[in-house]
Each structure stands twice: as structure tokens, then as C-alpha cells.
Amino acid sequence: MGETIKGQQNDQKKKTNMIKVDQECFMKGNDYIINVEHLHKQFLVDKKPMDVLSDINLSIKRGEFITIVGHSGCGKSTLLKIMCGLVDYEDGIVERNGHAVVGPGPKCGMVFQDHRLLPWLKIKDNVGFGLSALPKKEREESVRKHLEMVGLKGFENSYPAQLSGGMSQRAAIARGLANNPTILLLDEPFGALDALTRIQMQKEILRIQKEQSTTMVMVTHDIDEAIVLGNRIVVMSARPGKIMDIIKVSEAGRERNSEEFGRYKKKIYDYLFSEENNEMTYKDVSSDIDEIQKKKKNAS
């Protein structure tokens, strides 16, 4: 008897909690398109858990351009893949449009560092890859529109092998945008491009973002790129990946030759290359080496 009453009370509690959560979501739903709270992520390395992301809190407004910078291995790509639904997480809240992320969805596109076009599909079929549910006419229309948007009109029937690196990356962006997502996640999309092409692509992605008012989150290791593109810059530390600071960038600060740009750059440099941080990574490595040596001793 007692147990059932307890159970009922618990149910009641859950229900009120759920209503609360729902209300919160509804309220947040208007402002925040992506909401990450107390996110933790671990990877198993040699059967031992290793913290990749630790206590990540990040709320992204509709139409915002967020850039994430950090050393390689700080988990920034993992964070992006978690937002996308390609990677699971252990603990915390990750929401898109007020709903917990359980997998990839059509309203959230993603562009990878290596363009990942399928070599056996023509450019038009690569761009229309996620549109198989649409009728043929609409699909063709969307492909045409997005190819034009990224400046690849006339390359519909080419194969990826016939395009240069920059053009392939444009095609990948067109694929990411083809089903009109409200969110586009970009994982170092210009990392493999030469400096001139990169600057040109940065301009174009900004133009597209303004035209479509898509919310964009871009991971990059290029500090200049982060300042030029981001409304806000998320600076991350490594092992485990933590957010050190979120820097708001003023419109004037996004100009490469402005004084403010230099100030932002210095601030980010100081975060990423302060001695304190370097020492920490050295310590991490040395303790890792100690452990490996211990293991070897035990094994022998």
C-alpha cells in the first residue's frame, strides 16, 4: 500500500517537473534555437574513460553566427557533432528548437572539413542528396537555387573529382543548405583551403548567412576567421574541453584592419597560449607518460 502511494507521489512530482520543463522550453523556444546545459562527454580510450567535454553551457540565439576556437583535440568538433545528433552524450541537456536532440534532423545541416561529396554522384545529385523525399521538380529547383547561391552554376553535371578544393567545399555548403535548414553547423569547413580562397569563402558564407538568416555554428582553428565571422566567439580549453570564455564581437570589430579586431585577437591569443595553460598541458602529458610506463612495468 505504502509503496503505491509513494509511487503516485513520485509520478505527480515528475508530471509537475515535466510541465515546468515544458514551460521553460516554450519560453526559451523563442530566443534560443540551440541550448546546451551542463553537457559532459566521455570517450573510451584503451577501455578507460577520458573526459572530452566537461560542463559545457551554451545558448545560441536564432540567426546568430557562433564561432568556436580552441586547440586541436579540445572536443570542439565533438561538441558540434553532439549538437547535430551524430554523437551521443552522457550527461546534460542538448536541445534544438526546444526539443532534446536524439539524432540528425532535416532542419539542421552540417558541413565537414573534408567536403565529403560522394565521388560517384554528379554535383547536382550530391547537393540534392538529402532531398530524396521531395518530388523531382522541387528537388531540382532547390539544387539549382543553392548551386547558384554558392556560385557553381553550370557545374551540375560535373563529378567532384573535376572540381577544385574550393569549389568542392562550395558544393558541400550547397548540400548543407539544400533542405533549407534553420541551423547550419560547420566543422572547420575552410581548413583545407588556401589563404586567398578562404577569405573569399568567409565573405560568401557571411553573405549567405545574412540572406538566409540561418543560424550558423562554426568550429575553426583560425583566430582571424573566428573574429570575422562570429557574433560571439566561444574559446575552449583542451582535455577536458571546457568553455574558457564567450566573447561578444561588435560589428566594427569584425573588420580585419580595425583596432578592435586586434584587441579581440590578443584576448583570444592570451587565452589559448597563456603559460598557465601550456603548463597544464605539459603536466597532463607527463602524467600520461608516467601511467604508460607504470602499465608497462605491471605488464612485464
Partner: peptide, 20 residues
């Protein structure tokens, strides 16, 4: 990476086989 693209666009196993 290509399989990840298939997962991103939620291709079912049969379509993943045929297209990737």
C-alpha cells in the same frame, strides 16, 4: 565520413547500401 553523411541525412540501411 561518407557513412556519417548517410546518417546525417537519415538514410535507411537499404538506401545506405545502395547509395554509399
Amino acid at each position: 565520413g561518407m557513412l556519417e553523411v548517410a546518417r546525417l541525412y537519415k538514410l535507411n540501411p537499404w538506401k545506405t547500401f545502395i547509395k554509399v
